[in-house]
Nucleic acid binder design. Sequence first.
DNA 1: GCCGTTTTCGGCCCGACTGTTTTCAGTCG
Length: 584
Amino acid sequence: MARVNDEVEALLLEYADLIAITGGDAFRQRAYERAARGVRGHPEDVSRLDAADLRAVPGVGRSMADKIEEYLRTGRIAALDRARAAVPQGVRRLMAVPGLGPKKAMALYRERGIASVDQLAEAIARDGLKGLAGFGPGTVRGILRGVETLRSAGGRLLLDAATGLADEAVAAVSAAPGCERCAFAGSLRRMRETVGHIDVLAAARDPEPLIAAFTAMPSAAETAGRGPAEASVRTADGFGIDLCVLPPEAWGAGLLHRTGSRAHHARLRALAADAGLRLSWDGLFDAAGGDRVAAGTEEEVYARLGLPWIAPPLREDRGEVEAALRGAPHRPVTVEDIRGDLHTHTDLTDGLASLPDMVAAGAARGYSYYAVTDHAPMLRMQRMTEEKILAQRERLRALAGRHRGLALLHGTELNIGPDGGVDWPDAFLAGFDVCVASVHSHFGLDRAAQTRRLIAACENPYVDIIGHLTTRKIGRREGIDVDLDAVFAACARTGTAVEVNGHPNRLDLRDEHVLLARRHGVRFAVDSDAHSTGELGTMRWGVGTAQRGWLTTEDVINTWPLSRLGRFLRAPGRAPLGRARPGA
DNA sequence: GCCGTTTTCGGCCCGACTGTTTTCAGTCG
């Protein structure tokens, strides 16, 4: 793990789980979970904070600050070590299975000695849970489904964790003497939703110091392989990172080769062959004479093949080469194109940061508009009321003009009920600038019912954006069963945008669904769904997914100027954007 | 364990869903 915050988050979550497993105070457990989220969402590295600043992190008080300091000083937390001694590691890992909580995990261990996911799967296969109290046939079926979901993500990292590791490796190698260039490549550079291993590429005359720096970095728990110009390491969790060092003149060809995808690179090789050239990992060569004709940069190689540079998320052989050959190269939306975030939370509901802090963080990102969209009352645990959200609106209006050039939009994230209804009547919804509507319950409805409810939500004139439409959580929960064609057709017909949620656990819609929706003529909002100031940065993964889905600025409403966005958000009785808002 | 314009104690994330233990515990959002 690269960022100290990630390490601390993991330790606090582990402690919270151990409290739950051993039947400790539920409020204490939640305090640790909350602090873990606070640390995760904190934009600064906790190792650089003094005691007072540490306690300013949401959810961190004296006891947590002491534990974090103890970890930073000694690399251990004594209280956590004691808790670990009481519960076998595998029991905690069982809790990663959807449907298995602390109680059932502990019961499996106590009654059947099961202490790993593999042992659990094996026990189910030989009917070994029979007779165990609380584990009837329905429960066992559910657990088995959970094991399959978990295994579907098996051993792969989410984009935030993979990016953290890759950044650490690139920083370590870049600092080595003689390193001319260094970057990560592979599926991470293409922004696939999960990453099986990380490819790091570097350019240098002498690979040795780079390899030494790479194998010595803190995350490299063991060196799995080593050659004259490459090395492989594994993290403590067994995740693999490869380094390949190239001569500087081969940098572009090497980066192209290592970035892939295999299918895209094969397409380029075929194109080269047609032109009497040969493309390999170290350059583009004249097939007859053997002279290297391009290799220094990706742009040079593409240009020699008659193509413009193609953004890595597009390199999946989904027509990107043909489009470029036709003279209509695809220009995907970029992070720099994003003018605002239309789905964010504050501590009024389940966010961690205050309204002024979230707004300030949005301003710091250079946005021209920023929407606050806290949860609505149907999500009971959030205890939202009309009074609370109206008071928030007043506080938001009072912040207008505080940040030059930033228009503040007041919104909400509505819940789509099983029948497609949402939390508030039209008259109240008309008071919001923007409404996101999302499914948060009744995941088990059948396909027809899910499709009906989503179409009904689209038809609500105040619903502007459908949030995280399939509700999948990578490795935790399959998405709902829904007729996406029918829903996207309804979105296009009603002018309802679909969200590309950038949270690395969600990435919902996923790239294939984005492609499908785009074919229906749907508009999109790429959002962070941030619950802390740091999480506003998840926008980058949303944009990566949008790029993989071939979205352009024309498709994405939050790349548009405020005036055009305002026309899109128009609804009966709703004040036009910019008029009701000083500072807009 | 955290937190505070109802403060230094006593609250804090409530309720639906599911399966099964036939009166409710466990899990989840």
